[in-house]
Nucleic acid binder design. Sequence first.
DNA 1: TTGAAAGCGCTAACAG
DNA 2: CTGTTAGCGCTTTCAA
Lengths: 361, 361
Amino acid sequence: MTKREQSAKEATVADVARAAGVSKAQAARALGGYGAVSEQVLSLVIAAAEGLGYRPNQLAKSMTTGRSNSIGVVVGDIENAHFGLALRGISDEVRDAGYTVVLVNTDEDLANEVAAVQELLQQRVAGLIVAPCSSTDTSHLESAQAHGRAVVLFDRGVRGLALDTVRVDFADAALEVGRLLLDTGHRRIGYVSSQRVKAAYQRGMDLGLSPVADRVDGIERAFTEAGSEWDPALVKLNATSDDALAAACAELLDQAEPATAVVCSDSLIALRVLGQIKRRGLRIPEDISVVAYDDFAWTELIEPPLTVVAQPVYDMGREAARALLRRLGHRVPAEQLPLRAHLIERASVSAPTVSSTLPGR
Amino acid sequence: MTKREQSAKEATVADVARAAGVSKAQAARALGGYGAVSEQVLSLVIAAAEGLGYRPNQLAKSMTTGRSNSIGVVVGDIENAHFGLALRGISDEVRDAGYTVVLVNTDEDLANEVAAVQELLQQRVAGLIVAPCSSTDTSHLESAQAHGRAVVLFDRGVRGLALDTVRVDFADAALEVGRLLLDTGHRRIGYVSSQRVKAAYQRGMDLGLSPVADRVDGIERAFTEAGSEWDPALVKLNATSDDALAAACAELLDQAEPATAVVCSDSLIALRVLGQIKRRGLRIPEDISVVAYDDFAWTELIEPPLTVVAQPVYDMGREAARALLRRLGHRVPAEQLPLRAHLIERASVSAPTVSSTLPGR
DNA sequence: TTGAAAGCGCTAACAG
DNA sequence: CTGTTAGCGCTTTCAA
């Protein structure tokens, strides 16, 4: 009768039914709030359940109903504030619908991502929100979809795949960034991203339906528009590790004709690029201009405050969740949250000095 | 036979068994890698499983074995880089043991936390890692423990509760912070934290086994040691919202005898306090000195670089996971990762100027 | 090494 | 309204 005894075995519907002196079905109905139950039975069952410390077993419930109350979220790097915030949006939105979030971090590694999706599917999550690390290798997502699981893509889309995708269109903002830099006098503009690709970037390379594709394209369009020569070699991808990023920065900054401006693909990249710049004793914006994507609080507090492209990350998370819930047959507000990116000019961009375009500074 | 058909119903052990022409039990044994199975049956079953695209149903598996392969993690604010990084540590560590992470964000709200624990328990997670928002209201955790679920506390302990707790001891570091500030000449030292307490802080208040308790205590001890008068009214807790934080800063900075130094309890608080300081046009460290807990990359990049107390957040996450795994009967490395905090002096602390101790600046 | 059968805790027909 | 009876997909005795 003591607590020790309860801890041995969790009370079940059958136990409650017995204690309440009703049938298992009635107890289940009372507990589950479905079907028809008399007042009397209801209170009897409630009391019994309370006395036994009954907790419904979600596993068994999902098992019999075939409906799970958890969704899987697969991201590349939870340490990145971008995903932290998006996750919060997702979390807040699905909570109201009664779902819980199973999170997997993939370290931006495709094999991990495939394994994660597999594992989540085996856990029979109701649906999946995935920020895919590749825009091309997505057979695991297609197959999940084919097996009847709801899948929503986050940040990155896949061409020709009928998957709901939540991402902001960076076309305008990216063009603006390009123009800003060009208007300010820059001609050698670097871009650093952790996006994984098979080879070094070259003009016309297919980056899939990714933010990076939009952003690089925006820069290129600005160059075309201005009739200037663009050097695609300054686009550095695959900066997934500290070393890789250091190498990219070296190629950008330590050459005869260095970049005079660098665009950082996210706040984590920005943090590291800033470190590299500092290490070299370069001043911003005198020696090098910097623009970063994602507007987190610290970008405004550093000296100089960073010119950034803000995006509504939290709302993106919520939208992804809503898209998924919709697929799962839930009612969610019809109006979409507007997902727009916008440039915020602060003080990290200025005209390149003559000296910065010369070697040996 | 087509994919469309498979998508209707997932293949089960029974299906595989039938296709392989063996009994359900044998198929299950072959698939699950337990029990005795002949070479022949094994290959037959493997082939059949492959052909049907069989995926084991984790739900059913957990259901029958009573063992779950997921653990619950409950944190106050996933947006806080502190938890993001810790979560990564947890995630990395449990992955190897075959567990997945169910994450719940509580917004530092006790009711949410209680509900989260309840929900996770109903989901029959194998164990729980909780960063409790209160050091006192912890009956839900005790009860989880009493019901035989493994619980590990993160960051904050509970006095008199036999729960594994992973937290770093801030006694030394906090004393050092106090000494540094006192030695530099500060006498009015503010402290800002988002920890929830029932009333305003006053000397001797029990803050539980929390980092904040350690840190405030360290400051007080430094004062005692120096024989100086400490003003406990400068300890501002409950700064959970932007408004609350703004109010705390106002009380600290906009009074006749303002604080000349402020200690920030975590990086999120620091970000906001820095914003408040900037808004007032105060210079760091000339007008006000700043020390923050948690050493994230941006703290070194701002101007001036922040003097901080670093803590091994990622390893704390890993240790929490290990403690839990241990409780769950897994073999994990016996040696503990050292969890030490240390002061990193940078440039945000200097002697208070006379003017800053005078009103009307 | 195999197979039949009995559950795990719950819901969902189907009769009363 | 209530109770009986099947399962959900898997593991696990228990015999063969």
